[in-house]
């Protein structure tokens, strides 16, 4: 017989502040954004939900999509590989100055996009002739360096929590260090790798700060999809167009999120208490 569970007041009370914040800062703005799309826009004067795909016809969208695809193809896989490689190396052996090393590796991750842009442009010097081709490597490089460090902390932490017994059993079974990393450690932190992948993909599609702060080069105005959406909403006052493009950006992330949830045991946790 199916047991009927009843929520306790304590649980509801504990969840209430987060739920209030979710409503005010997440769900209500999302509903407002979805409703806003149906209003008249510069690219759809009559106003309807067809703005969601009509906005894709803007001449700036295809280049911005190409830039996002570039980041997704080069920098997101590179970040995943580098984060996992450094986390596994840090976990593999004690190194003198390990504490300092982890702090230094984290440093690029704790600077803002603005500071990272300042550092990179100053380091590369004034003599570089920026063009559409090399500036995308600069933006990708900034996003890469500022994203890697914090994920190393998370993945290193998750590696540290793998049970000693499991690793010992694998070594007894004849695993070498490389096999231990690839066949035992990585599968055991796969949920966190999936989580990182989703957020890195979302970050690449939604990149905003780095190209905005590089606008002094004259090459990165409306470089990314977020910049085009921002331009619609806050420069031309076309909120319908801006939110329509933002919702378009959300679609691949939601698909990826659903695939992730469906293919992991994220929502399963046995009996509630």
């Amino acid at each position: 017989m199916r047991r009927v569970r009843k929520a306790r007041a304590g649980a509801l009370f504990m969840f209430a502040p987060y739920f209030a914040a979710m409503l005010f800062c997440g769900l209500i703005p999302l509903v407002v954004a979805i409703r806003e799309v149906a209003n008249p826009s510069w690219i759809n004067m009559k106003g309807s939900y067809t703005t969601i795909y009509r906005i894709l016809g803007d001449f700036r969208v295809i280049p911005a999509l190409a830039h996002a695809a570039f980041l997704l193809a080069i920098f997101v896989p590179a970040m995943i590989v580098v984060v996992l490689a450094i986390s596994l190396l840090l976990d593999a052996t004690p190194v003198r100055g390990n504490t300092l090393m982890r702090l230094v590796l984290l440093l690029p991750g704790i600077v803002s996009g603005g500071v990272a842009t300042l550092i990179w442009t100053s380091l590369l010097g004034p003599n570089i002739q920026w063009n559409g081709s090399n500036i995308r490597w600069l933006i990708g490089g900034i996003a890469f360096t500022s994203g890697v460090g914090s994920w190393i902390v998370i993945q290193y932490g998750s590696l540290r929590s793998i049970s000693h017994e499991v690793l010992e059993a694998a070594l007894v079974d004849g695993c070498n260090r490389f096999q231990l990393a690839i066949r035992i450690k990585l599968p055991m932190i796969s949920r966190y790798i999936g989580y990182m992948t989703i957020l890195l993909v979302a970050g690449a599609i939604q990149i905003y700060s780095e190209p905005t702060l590089l606008m002094s080069t004259g090459l990165t105005t409306d470089w990314s999809l977020s910049q085009v959406a921002y331009s619609y909403a806050f420069r031309t006052g076309d909120f319908a167009g801006g939110t329509a493009l933002s919702l378009d950006m959300l679609i691949p992330n939601i698909v990826l999120g659903i695939v992730f949830v469906m293919n992991t045991d994220f929502l399963k946790r046995g009996e509630r208490h």
Partner: peptide, 9 residues
């Protein structure tokens, strides 16, 4: 995962 631009306005 919602883009910050979508939420800002």
């Amino acid at each position: 995962l919602i883009p910050a631009t979508a939420m800002a306005m």
